[in-house]
Amino acid sequence: MNIFRFAGDMTHLISILILLLKIYATKSCAGISLKTQELYALVFLTRYLDLFTDYVSLYNTVMKIVFIASSLAIVWCMRRHPLVRRSYDKDLDTFRHQYVVLACFVLALLLNEKFTIQEVFWAFSIYLEAVAILPQLVLLQRSGNVDNLTGQYVLFLGAYRGLYIINWIYRYFTEDHFTRWIACVSGLVQTGLYADFFYYYYLSWKTNTKLKLPA
């Protein structure tokens, strides 16, 4: 475990906590895409199938449980919580994410490290995570303005991906058995998706204006 990977996990955890805090404190999920949250819950559920079979470390096991529990909690809040669900922008969150799920699953059947249930679902979760943010970015563009907590949520998510890429570069040069090409390539694609959001976020911060995404 290197510092880049640990920092990446922490920023990932912070991004989820920001979302939970925003929903809990404001009892509102305006500006948050339920579809992105559902995709993330699916990512964690399909990636951590090995939760009870392969024990890597206490840290890994605890973090996996935290990620699964928090992502399901967010989805539950947005779907079931009587107050929160009223503020969900159903007609803005129209990204057809079922096609994305299907495409990732087909890709995982074709491109995986080993053709076993666990490996196919792992590859599926890696591809799905790369595109899971799309409904959220589309919703932000649709709603035009980005409230600062949601903006920070996406910012921390981007930071987590960026730190993971640095972690892979570091591991590539320091370890002889480092082959996670599926995660690396998919991670690069995912970070690229954030790049344009970062650009507009930086512009809004620099010009001290409200973050506006071009429709």
Binding site: S57, F67, Y164, E175, D176, H177, T179
Partner: peptide
């Protein structure tokens, strides 16, 4: 040392 293919990241 992680052997090839062991998923030791999140």
């Amino acid at each position: 040392k992680t052997t090839k293919g062991v998923k030791d990241e999140l």
